[in-house]
Amino acid sequence: MKGKTKERVSYFFTHLFLIIVCLLTFIPIWWVLLTAFDKRVSLVSTEFLIYPRNPTVDNFIQVLSHPSFVTWLKNSFIFAAGTTIFSLTLATLSAYAYSRFDFPGKKAGLASYVIYMMLPTTAALVPQLLIVKYLGIKNSYLSLILIWSAANMAFAVWNLKGYFDTIPKSIEEAAIIDGASKFQVFTMIMLPLAKPALAITAIFIFTAPWTDYATSYLFLTDASKYTLAQGLFGWAADFKTVSWGVFCAGSIIMALPLTVLYLVFQKYIINGLTVGGVKG
């Protein structure tokens, strides 16, 4: 009997502890939701609320009809989707070759990606700026899609190669006996089998351009090419023209797609990160 009470008390404290932790993690998120979904007269929140007093979606309507915000959203999507499609295609092709062919130079090629991850990437910024200016592609979608693609390539290649390695070779061999070409094997057998790894890698690549402020700040000087990160950074620094409610609604729009994806794929993402080794 005594042991049971003792256990109950210890479970009570475990619950108490976890409730406190949950409160701490949830308060900032709740605060953003409150600010976004509550109607305030003033630009900033001047009173302390625990639940919305006047629930409204006005802030979302305002932010989605704000011409600049729509431009940023469109630009961020083009940059992120472009980078994802471009680098995922190249990385998948590479990873397949590294996983399935035994060609001279394979080890050197793979090792060069590891070395590449250790190089001082930020030292490249000034030369990259000079090159982009020289080629006359400053403020173009292409310039930053290339830069973000290159930045994510090493991780993507290693991650996908690791996954391809786990697919048994016997499946392909059967297809080759049936007369399929290597390319057919790649597109019709390997790619469908690698769907989960492709999805995770795509989420990772997409995150970089979607949330990168520093690179867009350096490379994009034309307001019509600004990204969400640049736009919201500007809004956060300027409470005089943009209300906190509108800013929070914008933040939610920027964060929601990725948050949902990360929650849904959490297990795979954690595995991909810790098994995929050190990402520089």
């Binding site: 590479s94 590294y98 060609f103 090629g109 990606y113 290339l146 290159a150």
Partner: peptide, 22 residues
């Protein structure tokens, strides 16, 4: 030789866009 074709585009992008500037 197909393998080289597969790995070349990624290598080319990484080298010209990143490694050379680094």
């Amino acid at each position: 030789r197909m393998a080289y074709l597969y790995i070349l585009p990624a290598m080319l992008v990484v080298f010209t866009v990143s490694i050379f500037p680094i």
